[in-house]
């Protein structure tokens, strides 16, 4: 029986947006941890660590997120590790976010002018103290706008996990469309919800960017 696209259907789609947000949050949280480690490894004085982190970034940026997803879902299943779709989705999105955030943050760390390193070294700070008190606080300011910009990409890329059956926003739209055959209506609603999540974040990123260029500390 073909259903009509009504309030219940709309609420189902809207409710599934929760999972899009949850996935974004997980990927952002875990990805930030990965990303931070990768960024520090990329600017390490220990060459093998730099190369390892560089290779990882190369892989993540050179491979579609879909492949990371298939590898962690189907690949690990063959290896005997049967992950629930939600977990596999969280892992692959986190790896993806980690690779990109690592590269964004490496750039931010490296764009802190070199004399800041010299001045803090000359004041007898250890390398860890240099990072903590001088370099990272300045790098964070530089990194915030592109990081927020990346979150928009992340929200949209969570749609990919619908392929392994995680019912998030995109998958919910697909299911409702199968029941109603009103693709234009259904996917317009789905798109609108994505837009309502992403647009404010984009605005925030743009505003933060202006703030950074104004160069005001504090």
């Amino acid at each position: 029986m073909i259903r009509q696209f009504g309030v219940d259907e709309f609420i189902f789609i809207l409710g599934s947006a929760k999972w899009t947000l949850v996935l974004t949050f997980i990927a952002l949280a875990l990805g930030s941890v990965f990303g931070f480690i990768i960024a520090l490894a990329r600017v390490s004085r220990f060459a093998p660590l730099r190369m390892l982190a560089g290779a990882w970034i190369g892989i993540v940026q050179g491979v579609p997120v879909l492949m990371l997803l298939f590898l962690s879902y189907f690949g690990l299943a063959i290896a005997g590790l049967d992950l629930p779709p939600m977990i596999a989705a969280g892992i692959s999105l986190s790896l993806y976010a980690g690779g990109f955030l690592g590269e964004i943050w490496r750039g931010a760390i490296q764009s802190v002018p070199h004399p800041q390193w010299e001045a803090s070294a000359a004041l007898a700070l250890t390398r860890t103290q240099q990072y903590r008190y001088v370099i990272l606080p300045q790098a964070v300011r530089i990194a915030v706008p592109p990081t927020v910009g990346f979150v928009v990409q992340l929200v949209k890329n969570t749609a990919i996990v619908s392929i392994i059956g995680v019912v998030e926003l995109a998958r919910a739209g697909h299911l409702i469309n199968n029941a109603t055959f009103q693709p234009f209506k259904v996917f317009a609603v789905v798109a609108l919800i994505y837009f309502c999540i992403c647009w404010p974040i984009s605005l925030l990123a743009r505003r933060l960017e202006r703030g950074v260029h104004a160069g005001r500390p504090g």
């Binding site: 004399p115 800041q116 001045a119 001088v134 606080p137």
Partner: peptide, 9 residues
Amino acid sequence: FQSYNLFPH
């Protein structure tokens, strides 16, 4: 240093 290098933050 010539360029002061104060910590701007």
